[in-house]
Amino acid sequence: MTTAFAASAREAGDPQLTPPRRGGRRRGWTPYLLLVPGLLWLTLFFIVPLVQLGSASLQSQWPGAPGYYYRDVNVGNYVDALSSYGVHFLRSLAYAGLATVLCFVIAFPLAYAMAFKAGRWRNVMLILVVAPFFTSFILRTIAWRQILADDAPLARTLNALHLLPGGHITETWVAVVAGLTYNFLPFMVLPIYTSLERADPRLLEAGRDLYADRLTTLRTVTIPLAAPGILAGTLLTFIPAAGDYVNAELLGSDTSTKMVGNVINSQFFTVLGGYPTAAALSISLMILILVLVLGYVRRFGTEEVL
């Protein structure tokens, strides 16, 4: 697990990505032979399905035959989907954005401590960060439901102190955001750790020398050093969080905390005739995320993310 996150951090950060080897390599057919099986798979089971989903999002329903569709260019599906479920979109972005920020706030000190303070405990801590994620994520999310439950110590204490306005933690957006934050935290920790670990600690000392005060060092030296990792981490957190529905399902309420993933899921499986709407929502979500990601990478990142 570690390596891939590390790798994606590299992707985002290493300016000398794929230096074509000295003198290049023989051209010819070999690279294509190596690529064909994998790219064929990705084309058949990623690109083609997306195209099909795109066409499904424009299908119309046979009048009077719910569940049966014909090929069409029914842009109305998108209008319907976005007008009925626009609020879920916004909610997804808000929750995912909030979870990403929280992840960063929690992950940064941890990654920093691992990279610079942990000494020989470094590897142990690395294992400890990854280890919880070998317990099924559904099980862990359910465990959070238990931890945050009304009759569990946390909610009881808060209630006793009158610090919990609604009386509940579960069934609120707080629980959903907490769940998202928890579930995607390592995706933030590991890339940041990797980019900090590769930085030279003497740079920090030099920074401290120049600026003396720690906050300035943090702002002007440490965070820029971690920037590639932060970029990779925010993407790896935000994208899955925005599309998630398990946390909202297990921790949130039936009405007020549903995210767009929940809608897509239920339109697909439980609403008769919801199929084109679900497809339209999926395509919209994909496009929205791609636009956000591209904008974000343009603004903050290097092209190497691609």
Binding site: Q52, G261, I264, F268
Partner: peptide, 14 residues
Amino acid sequence: ATPEVVLGASLLTI
């Protein structure tokens, strides 16, 4: 970079 619901939905469709 594609959310899992979208991957799942598109695969189901195809």
